[in-house]
Amino acid sequence: MGNYILCHERRAKRPYYIEAAGVNIWTIEELCYFLCEYVWLVDRSLLSEKLCDWVDKELQMPRLAKLLYAQCYRGGSLKEFSQVILENTGYCSKNEIYRIARLLDGMEHVSEPERLKQKGDYLLKDHKYRRAIGMYNQVLAMRRRGTLDGHFYSEVWRGKGNAYARLFLFREAAKCMDMACEQWASREARSSRLAALYLSYTEEEFQEQCRQRGIPQEEREEFLQKARDVYPRSRHLDAARLRREYGRDNV
């Protein structure tokens, strides 16, 4: 049998903007949801006096606000700050709070590029493609030799490529997929590259592009077989028209 979680009766008149997720929240439950579901996006920007003020004034939860102010002033960790919120609202069970605390604890040791990539992945999932591309660019700009392996950067390029593809910018997507394969030619990266090329060019051009990149014939054929089932050529998107409509310069 299910439960009913009683909500705090106050809803903020002015929302709090969570920059990391790019969303506005109006209730304490939404804040808890963010902490539980998007734990990878939680960063120290959350640990602010502004949030404490919002909890105090807008949600009128002075007791919780007092505890949060205390965490803020004594320079508490993200884990402690989030724990205070979750433990005083009853949104999730003790086990979940423990799980999130462990994740947040682990995140203290996670490098900045890894965290930013997670943010990019969240933004991509949330259909915020331009912001996701920005986030992936930040990760790529931070690249230093020896800190993270090629597989990680391959995934970053692939994420960026996916974001471009969602914006119908298939050539940009194909370039990103090329970079992903250069870093780490995983099965997913190779498949994504073929998909981007398939959507960018006519079938002849596609074959030519594949030859230039040295993609084996069998791999191409295997892909084409699947692609034709999913997306027959007769319904092929007119890339030029899409470019005109969606204006790549705007991206």
């Binding site: 049998m1 299910g2 439960n3 009913y4 979680i5 009683l6 909500c7 009766e9 439950e29 949104y91």
Partner: peptide, 12 residues
């Protein structure tokens, strides 16, 4: 009145 979240149920 009251406001609540459904947790594993589809009825009240």
């Amino acid at each position: 009145s009251c406001e609540f979240l459904l947790d594993g149920t589809n009825g009240i």
